[in-house]
Design a protein around this nucleic acid. Structure first.
Lengths: 333, 333
DNA sequence: ATGAAAGCGCTAACAT
DNA sequence: ATGTTAGCGCTTTCAT
């Protein structure tokens, strides 16, 4: 069954296309009775407007393109959820793409999304290669770089400093009396923000004449299972450490399970520290320290930035929104 | 900076729009040297095609609309990930919408997605109200109902029987010698598939002259924290149970943490059973039983169904693809 | 191998 | 309050 068009609705209602168009958009200047007739006609034909035509004609899609690196880390679904919530009622609609932490794929996806003429675009992080940046600039729409602040933004920037997060965690753990700190990480070639945290953390150690007492890395993406495996390996190789800094909470949670299996008391014997502040962390059988990143809030802030920019016709407030993740799970800070 | 159009590219290359169009699509009948000139022109203008115009004109979007109830349960991101993987290289592109387990919102989102003229649509479950079903049928594109098989499909159907899953788990737990089985659930008014599992489970109990020995329910959506809270409440109220069936694995994992906190041995004293087979479950400090649902595989199967339907011009194989989730984490089955 | 004309389904802008 | 004209940027179809 071919979909019916506005023209058919108009014919059935005995009016012109324009009047039908106005009526269906709840327009101002349509006679109530005419409007009713049009709406009846539309209903009886099960008319569904064609947004391709609408957007091509009106030159506005009200689409917000969003590119995130992954869906398997719960962090990003939460961000997306924040974005959709923040966009609700604005007439804007989010469209998602996944880059798999691959900059080439990211470039292609962004190009693809831009071809749909979105009204704004949100990308993750600010470490896009030059070519991608150029595309984003040429698109001539609000560009929001989300999650990270450490770098030079193209346009809008919402996030937190991963450098600061790593630094703060190092300071906190040293303050808590930890001395022999190991690092456990996943897919560091891909996860640039984890690298930023790690480097800043290491710098604090270095300033105290310290260094990571041991390290376990893997190319796979973070997961509880991987955290468990690497931790098991780590404590076998280096049983005398008193703290482990992980690339994120998934890894740290897996680390906790490894410690439990090996009868290591957490946090008294070894303190475990991650990043994100996943909901999971407050239900765990032992506390792990973490920097609580406001994922939904960042998504909502990005959404608000866009709706504001749309409303004010491009004129807007600050281009950068800074979040500061508190450290939790370390007892008294 | 206004985006350049095909016309401008053509002008710069000194050819007609049509030739430019053909060249950029890597067309068959373009002189190699002409093609090169056009591609140069496009590059120098940073030309990005307008897919609205393309799709409106060609009457094909190659968009696959996907509507899932939630993003916070890791299950759905995994399904989406399976879909995108399965679509890769087919020229099709997935677009996601979230219904928040709300049938009205689902209807609106589906209507909205249909207005973009997708080439196919994937929705979750087959319990859509009549009005939504009518819209789906009228869309006149392949419709895939995913995750569930218990009901009457509109068109294609990929999933597993939640009734069977509940029944099988009940049989397995009884076979394992469990007698006093409690139920812990979340948001059952919304999560119809969890209800199907629960009902089928209860039916097996009834056939043995048994019933749930206790029950803890909550309106909130499933989470580890909620599972922990409800389980704590349950074991306080009814300490003599020997098994708990949960609405899903998140809840069961929380249940495990509650048991650990209260010194209850899992699985010797109480067996915990969930649903999904989340990756998390094999890293946990004690085993929980679960039905391992093939989430990525279901997504990929749906994607393949679509690419096949597109390729064969609508003619295709079976309309239904059945998955059977094995029960794991119960020792010998 | 290339081009011209027509049109996809809608709205913007200008009538009336 | 309603209609008319033009056109969004591309592809399809038919010429050449």
């Amino acid at each position: 069954m071919r979909r019916s068009t506005l023209e058919e609705v108009a014919a059935l209602a005995g009016v012109s296309k324009m009047t039908a168009s106005r009526a269906l958009r709840g327009a101002s200047d349509v006679a109530p009775e005419t409007g009713e007739r049009v709406r009846q006609a539309a209903k009886s034909l099960s008319y569904v407007g064609n947004r391709l035509a609408l957007s091509l004609s009106s030159q506005r899609t009200n689409l917000v393109a969003v590119v995130v690196p992954s869906m398997s880390n719960t962090v990003f679904p939460e961000v997306l959820s924040g974005i959709t919530t923040g966009l609700e009622g604005s007439g804007m609609q989010a469209v998602f793409g996944i880059s798999d932490y691959d900059t080439d794929k990211e470039r292609d996806i962004i190009r693809d999304m831009l071809s749909w003429q979105p009204s704004a675009i949100i990308v993750t992080g600010l470490d896009q290669p030059e070519e991608t940046v150029r595309m984003l600039k040429l698109a001539d729409i609000p560009v929001i770089q989300l999650m990270d602040l450490d770098g030079t933004p193209v346009d809008f920037n919402v996030g937190l400093s991963h450098g600061d997060a790593g630094r703060d965690m190092a300071v906190a753990l040293l303050a808590a009396g930890r001395k022999k700190i190991a690092y456990v990480g996943s897919a560091l070639e891909k996860d640039l923000r984890a690298v930023k945290r790690k480097s800043a953390f290491a710098k604090v150690l270095a300033a105290q004449g310290l260094a990571f007492a041991a390290e376990q890395l893997d190319d796979d993406f973070s997961s509880i299972a991987l955290g468990k495996r690497l931790t098991t390996r780590l404590i076998a190789a280096k049983p005398d450490i008193d703290c482990i800094y992980y690339s994120n909470d998934d890894m740290a949670a897996g680390g906790l399970f490894a410690c439990m299996e090996h009868g290591i008391a957490v946090p008294s014997q070894i303190v475990l520290a991650g990043f994100n502040g996943l909901d999971l962390t407050d239900s765990l059988p032992a506390p792990i320290a973490t920097s609580k990143s406001p994922r939904r809030a960042m998504g909502e802030a990005a959404a608000r930035l866009i709706t504001d920019a749309m409303a004010n016709g491009g004129v807007s407030g600050p281009k950068t929104i800074v979040f500061k993740p508190p450290i939790i799970g370390l007892g008294v800070a």
